[in-house]
């Protein structure tokens, strides 16, 4: 019989942090964090688009706060959250429905690579206007 370390209930935070994490554990943790963040963003999104019903001036006035460089950068990082949650979500579906348990680690690596490439591609699309202005 293999010996198992007893789970230390009193220091469960520490025990969980010390748990050896493989790609799957990180995917699970990050999927939760990005999911919760996206949910918070969805509420914010509905709130921030609600001035649409007050007409052109009110909406454009409201939107001018969100087109500052700070919010544009935040939008880009939001895309990183969307990307991770989407790609890992597809990975989860493949694991559940397409025998992905046999190749889930490779899937994780591929999704990280695809994600990083798409993150920078989206960065170019989002800031292309500003980039073109810089090199005029």
């Amino acid at each position: 019989m293999a010996e198992f370390k007893k789970f230390d209930q009193k220091n469960w935070v520490k025990t969980n942090l010390n748990y050896r994490k493989d790609s799957g554990s990180w995917a699970w943790i990050l999927h939760r964090i990005t999911g919760l963040a996206l949910m918070a963003y969805l509420f914010m999104h509905i709130y921030s688009l609600s001035p649409l019903s007050q007409g052109r001036e009110a909406f454009n006035e409201f939107m001018s706060h969100y087109t500052t460089p700070f919010f544009m950068a935040m939008e880009w990082f939001l895309f990183a959250f969307v990307l991770f949650h989407s790609l890992n979500g597809v990975r989860i579906v493949l694991v559940d429905w397409a025998d992905g348990a046999r190749y889930h680690k490779a899937l994780y690596r591929y999704s990280i690579v695809i994600g990083v490439v798409m993150f920078f591609a989206m960065g170019y699309v989002m800031f292309s206007h500003e980039i073109h202005k810089l090199f005029k």
Partner: peptide, 15 residues
């Protein structure tokens, strides 16, 4: 994402 970021205005202007 394609719709909102195709041009800088497409996602951020009332029109």
């Amino acid at each position: 994402y394609i719709l909102m970021h195709y041009t800088p205005e497409s996602g951020h202007s009332y029109d």
